[in-house]
Design a protein around this nucleic acid. Sequence first.
DNA 1: GCGTCCAATACCGATTGGGTATCGGACGTG
DNA 2: CACGTCCGATACCCAATCGGTATTGGACGC
Lengths: 97, 97
Amino acid sequence: MSFVQLESFVAVAEEGHMGRAAARLHVSQPPLTRRIRGLEDELGAALFERTRAGMRLLPAGERLLPRARTILAAVADVPALVVGETRASGLGRRERD
Amino acid sequence: MSFVQLESFVAVAEEGHMGRAAARLHVSQPPLTRRIRGLEDELGAALFERTRAGMRLLPAGERLLPRARTILAAVADVPALVVGETRASGLGRRERD
DNA sequence: GCGTCCAATACCGATTGGGTATCGGACGTG
DNA sequence: CACGTCCGATACCCAATCGGTATTGGACGC
């Protein structure tokens, strides 16, 4: 599991649509499909339901979403942390996951 | 920054030695050197001091270490989380970072 | 000075990963 | 009921990434 996969997962979950998520991530749709599928394969669980309208979160995906956000936030402010910006971490308690 | 880089960073920090860290990660020493260097380049800060005896953490590395552990722990129990193992998360408050 | 132990570099081959083009299915609409 | 459309999935190819072996360069300890 990679950060890129988690980032992709969150984008798809929020957009509910591969095409829009791909645009937001500045990639084309096929690699994004592969990232999501790779994540699902690795976890051994389907995260989305493929509907005619797009992608809808399944329960497993709902459980993953807040955790993915927590991880991404923790990663995102690593640069500031390393430089010594102790405050403004952005890592305060998020919603429970 | 990737998950593998953080994992490598923690291993080197704990072993204080590229060779031992490499063995623990089941890779050879050169790729590990590159991972650490890549992380330092990306963050724009040296994380280790290269001494004759091995690798010693610099202040920037000391700041990163607990955070890296937090992130790795959060990632490590994602599988259990997704499957629905709500408890035993391993994500309880760690030492401050 | 020579052997040794460390991390860093050079080089090459295998794997991964993205992009374009295309497919297959599920609707809506005339 | 055939056709255009919109969705994600797949095929294929090429570039970039990544790991491994071999080697280098520097700093001791004897």
